[in-house]
Design a protein around this nucleic acid. Structure first.
Lengths: 195, 195, 195, 195
DNA sequence: GAATAAACGAGACGGTACGTCCGGTCTTCAT
DNA sequence: ATGAAGACCGGACGTACCGTCTCGTTTATTC
């Protein structure tokens, strides 16, 4: 990826990169995404503006990178044996993540930016949303293979419903995702129906 | 509301108001929300900037007002006799609305702004989202009264799932709401379960 | 002047006029001429902006009017019997006026405006400067008639030198006109020379 | 003065500086000082507004700089041997300058601004007026040393009378400084008196 | 080791839009 | 017809950031 093979010249400074990502995350928490500026990130991190523009196309991309760098945000793909248990485990992991206000704020900002800036939207969808969909997709496909999915439901729709409901609570309702919601979602998406 | 009784001074110009709302809507369609500016709206509408700032706190509020002024966006509360039919009718109406690209673009922009600007978020939730929730709420409450709601499902969760899935398709998936999704949503949210 | 004979409609309010002139003078003293605005005068005086625009073409004209209304600013034309005594009396009267800071401030502002706004400059010259020149002119002409003027000096130049020096101290030197200056001016402009 | 030794960052653009000063001078000549705007200067010079604000506190300071940059405005200190000849030479040089309408307009505007804006007034007095006073001061001091000054006249008063009369003609009388005035001034300020 | 080349902090640059202020005009209702 | 109130269009203000462009300096690779 970062094709540094034998190129002359100074190497990218990992120190600067970290300082920039940290400054961006802190500033977002302190002043909010709307008041976050490239100049502010540069000033806080001690980097020059050009250094930021050299490596990221926008402030949203800096934050997306900062998010991706947080290793602990990884949501594992559970394998509990049954579709219901897997789904419940997946939702519980997501729920845990949702209880960290700073992360939630970041996600709201990035989703917003994705609506306004089409190019970033593309990157956000590919680098973030698609990965989450893939994780849940694995679980649902397993259920399909086992015949556990309720009839009349495609796996894509299950995924849309799960993520849609979670995002809606964050974006529109401003209510945290809670245990009750998880229970109801699992109920709706798993229980077999009468003919 | 606009208590003009016997107040001295010139009255608010309805002509300017219309010109501003129209210009804002047109410009959003032409250049996109990100490139929409108050100055641009003023120039296009022939109004002074101050006139815009006097009546709306931000460009998003202008668009929200423009949206509210479009009478044809009203979603009726159907009463077809059964919960399933009502829900299907409600979704069909929403689906029809979603097939108008300009409206969808507007909604995406407003939802984005609501994430970034907390004060506008409050207004957007109260003046737009709450009304839609109330409409669907009426339908669902009727179902509850009739005992048609699947057990283990609260009416608020039904609403979250419905709007969540619709918004998710618009915001994250960039896939239009289609008939297949409607069918699956209705299936999931109506069918009685085996004990 | 104010030809109100038999005109229909409400008469000009003397109360408003006074309030406006007072407010303008006070505001100039409080915030300075640069920060004086028509809106400010209207607000302070309780008048509408239109009322001010109806009767004065600019804020400088309001102040010029306020100045003219101050009756005590009148400089009498002395007649002491000799040119030297007259000149000294005239300068003493002007000197007394120059010791009132507010008046000096006003004069500085009006002279400044006269440079920047040609139309007002014309009015200022005619309504203020010309009157002062005429007063001193009477004195000097009397001296000419008596043969008291030093040879090689025209009356216009005497006037230019007197007012020039006084204004210069106010505008450029920021030093008050004092007794020493008066003495020296009198000396220069009266003493007969050796052939 | 401009201590650029080893400072990091891009250097100030001399090209921009020149373009701004030229544009300001031209615009003043074309539309007058009252209609001169920072935005206009920026537009005409091709510079950004911020570049102007970075280096000059007001439009008057831009003009003062433009004036100072005009090398040909320098008034030499003559040394003709006698006070009278020196004074006459100094006045002739000033008179020549006064016959350039653009320069006179500029001086009127700056003197006006100096009345209205106290901070600029200070700069104008120090950077322009004081230099002229110093030049004439040299001449007059020489006369004092030689005992050529009329008795009862201090050197400061001579300077006040000279500059006062010149400025008054420009500011108040709107009559150019002419040869007759020079002659009369020299007469008044040099001739010995009868006891 | 010298030359070359890239990245770095710093900061000036041309731009664009911001939100505010005020100018001068125009209703509106009351006197 | 005047007057107070206040909305209107217009234009400039001074500021904040954008994204780009020098600068001088530091660090690496190649000759």
């Amino acid at each position: 990826m970062n094709d540094q093979r034998g190129r002359p010249g100074r190497k990218r400074s990992e120190e600067s990169r970290r300082a920039i990502l940290t400054a961006a995350a802190e500033l977002t928490a302190e002043v909010g995404y709307a008041s976050l500026t490239i100049e502010g990130i540069a000033a806080r991190s001690g980097a020059g503006k050009q250094t930021i523009y050299r490596w990221w196309p926008s402030k949203a991309d800096v934050l997306l990178d900062a998010l991706a760098t947080k290793a602990d945000l990884h949501i594992p793909i559970p394998d509990e044996g049954t579709y219901e248990a897997d789904l419940r485990a997946f939702l519980a992991a997501t729920f845990a993540l949702g209880s960290r206000p700073q992360v939630v704020e970041l996600l709201r900002a990035l989703m917003a930016e994705a609506q306004i800036n089409a190019a970033f939207g593309e990157r956000f969808r590919e680098m973030f949303l698609a990965q989450r969909r893939a994780a849940l997709g694995t679980i649902v496909e397993r259920a399909v293979a086992r015949g556990e999915l309720p009839s009349g439901l495609t796996s894509q729709t299950v995924i849309d419903i799960v993520f849609g409901t979670l995002w809606y609570r964050v974006l529109a309702a401003h209510r945290p995702v809670d245990q009750a919601l998880i229970d109801e979602l699992v109920t709706v998406l798993t229980t077999r129906r009468q003919s």
